[in-house]
Amino acid sequence: MIWGNRNEQELKRHFEEIAYQYMDILYGTALKMTKDPVEAEDLVQDTYLRAYRFFNKFEEGTNFKAWIFKILTNTFINKYRKKAKQPHQVDFDKVEFLYADDQKENSPDNVRNLDNDIYQKLFDDKINDALDKLSDEFRMVVLLCDVHGFAYKEISEIASIPIGTVMSRLSRGRKQLQGLLLEYAEQEGFIKKRSSN
């Protein structure tokens, strides 16, 4: 518990000292989740308000960043998700080819498809576009893991899902991203278009 001998004013000051440093990353994440600047602001404001009201539940010395991200995620799921725009769903058939049968995986075309240099030629906005096209669940764990660097256990607590689900969503999310990036690479002409079969 964080109350100690502090009065409410001191507690508010203490909260602001700890919490405000995360405003940019919370807003950036909220924007990625809601895809709407106005809703992202509302989400961050609600997150801070809830965090402040529950501040007596926060145990000093534990991970405040993970704690406030949990509040952000819960608030998003409870309040905003229903009215959030449905993201474009990736056609899974198009990306599954990467993990298809052994024979296909070993074909020279697919080996070339996985060349790291191709990705480096893609522009940042294409990568951001690809991330935006993931479903909410996948995008959330990819952001928490790859952008914010949370460990699986922390993501599990933040998103209130089992660690196995974290792994599964990350795995599938990255597969979809990989497929989308390859599509972009094809469109930009960095790699030869795949044959239709």
Binding site: M23, D24, I25, L26, Y27, G28, T29, L31, K32, E41, V44, L98, Y99, L114, N116, Y119, L122, D124, I127, N128, L131, V142, L143, C145, D146, V147, G149, R174, L177, Q178, L181
Partner: peptide, 21 residues
């Protein structure tokens, strides 16, 4: 397969832009 996943992870880390508040 591992390298490709590492590459995607690295790209997301480096290229995903989080807008400032």
């Amino acid at each position: 397969i591992c390298e490709a996943q590492k590459q995607v992870k690295k790209l997301v880390k480096e290229c995903v832009l989080l807008e400032k508040a």
